[in-house]
Every structure is written in structure tokens, then in C-alpha cells.
């Protein structure tokens, strides 16, 4: 099976997973105690008001009928209408998704760029001060909640040093006219990076620490293999051994951990968006839950699930690409 067919097959497999996510989310959202209409109208709504709001959002229909209607709507690309914002859910998601994507992808970039060299150097200099420092940093990173790191960064770099802004996120592709103090695209990019720095470090630290630990561990494992010893015996340069013989073989578990970290990155993004007042999907899903906004809860969960699934599929494809021993599901004859 070629990579294209493999990808297509994985996407087809994702459909029942998404259906399961929709079903479970729908049932869980409706099982949450409380009434969205009462939350919306306050403690003493009149019966007429309640009936009007219920009819408006289809809440007067039986659960099974709402579920069927919701599935049909999803098939048409309609995620419903937000009860809280009174706008289509897709509109709200389209507004918020780019900021969350920017935050998460930047965090991943930060994590990989820092963690991979750190893990390699740590393994190469095992039990030296560099290794000890890297291990301490990575241990703290995996043990510390991202929101706490965020608050500490704000305390130090905003409150004490005044070096960074603590709120909002500027998109690098925003129109300069919409960005305070920016007149060119370069200015916008600079402002975006300035705003992005602290949230990215706060969110990316966990991923960075986890990847560093696995990178170091795998590199140590590979460097102790017989073929590495043989290469050294042949007098191959240490740099070549690291780059050509050890590094690539150590990356498979790293790729796996990068994929698996997506779930924690999504959870972390929700908290980080709250801490840094970023107007993204995280704050959107929190608003949805606080207000029992069923369509918005389901829409945001569906998008996060879809994002996670795509991430996992990409991980699998990359895995197979990096390791020639991994096939795309069928044997060549």
C-alpha cells in the first residue's frame, strides 16, 4: 500500500472514531446537571420565555431526535447555533481556531527545536554537568503545570521586568492597520513574536521536557548498540556516528511521543489561553461549558478531536516514512 492509500485508509478509519466522539460528547453534554435555558435566563424565567428559548434552539425535542438532527447537520457541515453567542458555531470556531493553532504549533516548534538538541547533547555527555542540567530542566518541565509556568512567566517577565505583554495574541498575518504600533508586515511579525513568546514557552515546556527525556534515553540506548561500538572500532568519527548511525534510529519513539503529547497540548492550551487572555478555542470551550452551550461544547470538542486525529495520523505516516521497516499495512511481493 502506498503512502497516499495508507493516508486515505487512515482517514476513513477516523470516521467511526469521530462518530463515537460526537455520540459520547452529545450524551455527556446533555447529562451535565442543569438547564442551559435557566443559565441563560436567570433564576426565575417565565414559562413563556423558557418555551420560546427551548423552541428556538430545538431543546424542546426528545434527546434522540436532537441527536439525529445533529448528525444530519454535521453531515451538511453545520455545527448548529451557539446558545450563548447566538451565532453559528462554525463562525465562532473559524474566528478562534487560527490563534489556537498558532499557539499550539509554535509551542511544538519551540519544544522540538529545544528538546532534540538538548536530548542528544545530554546523551552524548552523560553524567556530565550538561547532562545533569538537562535532566533537572526536563524533570521540572514534566512535573510543573503549564498554567503555573505561565503565571510565573507573567510575574517575572511582565510584572517585574516589563519585557513582554501579558495578554492577547497578534496573528503574524494580521493587517498592519489592525495592529497597534505596526506599519509594515515586519512590524506585525515582530509584535506577533513578542506576544507569542511567553505563552509558547509556558505551553511548550511540558512537550519540550517530555521530548528531551525520551530523546536522551533513546540516544543512550542506540549509542550502546553493537553497531555503534563497531563503527567506533572502525574509527568512524564520533560526529558521523551521532548524526548518521544513532540519531535517525533514535527518533521513532520521539515521533511517537510527539504525537501522544497532542492531547496534553490541547488541554494545556485551554489553560494557557485563560492565563494569557488569548481569544482562542480554549476560552471558547470554557465559555461553552460555563454556559451549558450544547452546540458550542459539541462543536469545539469535535474540532479538537479532529485535530488530534489528524495529528495521530500524521505521526503514523511520519513513523512509517522514517523507519523503512514499517510498512503501510501490506507486504510488497
Amino acid at each position: 500500500m502506498g503512502i497516499a492509500r495508507y493516508t486515505l485508509w487512515r482517514l476513513v478509519q477516523a470516521v467511526p472514531v469521530l462518530l463515537g466522539v460526537v455520540t459520547i460528547t452529545f450524551l455527556l453534554a446533555n447529562a451535565i446537571p442543569g438547564d442551559p435555558v435557566q443559565t441563560m435566563l436567570g433564576p426565575s424565567p417565565s414559562q413563556a420565555e423558557v418555551a420560546s428559548i427551548r423552541a428556538k434552539y430545538g431543546l424542546d425535542q426528545p434527546l434522540w431526535q436532537r441527536y439525529v438532527n445533529y448528525l444530519l447537520d454535521i453531515a451538511r457541515g453545520d455545527l448548529g447555533r451557539s446558545i450563548y453567542y447566538e451565532t453559528p458555531v462554525t463562525t465562532k470556531i473559524a474566528e478562534r481556531f487560527p490563534k489556537t493553532m498558532l499557539l499550539m504549533l509554535s509551542s511544538y516548534l519551540f519544544a522540538i527545536v529545544v528538546a532534540v538538541p538538548l536530548g542528544v547533547i545530554s546523551a552524548k555527555r552523560r553524567n556530565e554537568p550538561t547532562d545533569h542540567a538537562a535532566r533537572v530542566v526536563s524533570l521540572i518541565g514534566v512535573s510543573t503545570p503549564s498554567f503555573w509556568i505561565g503565571l510565573m512567566l507573567i510575574l517575572i517577565f511582565v510584572f517585574k521586568l516589563g519585557l513582554f505583554p501579558s495578554t492577547n495574541l497578534v496573528l503574524p498575518w494580521a493587517d498592519p492597520a489592525d495592529v497597534t504600533g505596526a506599519s509594515t508586515r515586519i512590524d506585525v511579525l515582530g509584535t506577533a513574536l513578542h506576544h507569542l513568546a511567553l505563552p509558547v514557552v509556558a505551553l511548550g515546556t511540558l512537550q519540550m521536557a517530555a521530548i528531551t527525556r525520551i530523546e536522551r534515553s533513546e540516544m543512550l540506548d542506540v549509542l550502546s548498540q553493537d553497531y555503534v561500538t563497531l563503527a567506533r572500532a572502525y574509527g568512524v568519527r564520533e560526529r558521523t556516528i551521532l548524526r548518521k548511525h544513532a540519531f535517525r534510529n533514535a527518533q521513532l519513539p520521539v515521533i511517537t511521543i510527539i504525537g501522544l503529547q497532542l492531547a496534553s497540548a490541547i488541554g494545556g492550551a485551554i489553560l494557557i489561553e485563560a492565563v494569557f487572555s488569548i481569544n482562542g478555542m480554549g476560552t471558547l470551550i470554557l465559555t461553552a461549558i460555563y454556559n451549558l452551550d450544547y452546540p458550542l461544547i459539541m462543536g469545539t470538542t469535535l474540532v479538537f478531536s479532529l485535530f488530534f486525529l489528524v495529528g495521530v495520523i500524521l505521526t503514523d505516516i511520519t513513523y512509517a516514512y522514517v523507519d523503512p521497516r514499517v510498512s503501510y499495512g501490506s507486504k510488497e511481493v
Binding site: 503565571l151 507573567i154 510584572f159 485563560a274 492565563v275 487572555s277
Partner: peptide, 18 residues
Amino acid sequence: FTPVEEGTTRITTLESGE
């Protein structure tokens, strides 16, 4: 008017001049 939901961050924006 800008919304900052997290209390500590909101207070920090006062200190930073945001």
C-alpha cells in the same frame, strides 16, 4: 475595553500599563 478573564493577569496589565 479589553476582556482579561484571569484575575492575576488582569491586575498585571494594570502594572504593565496595558
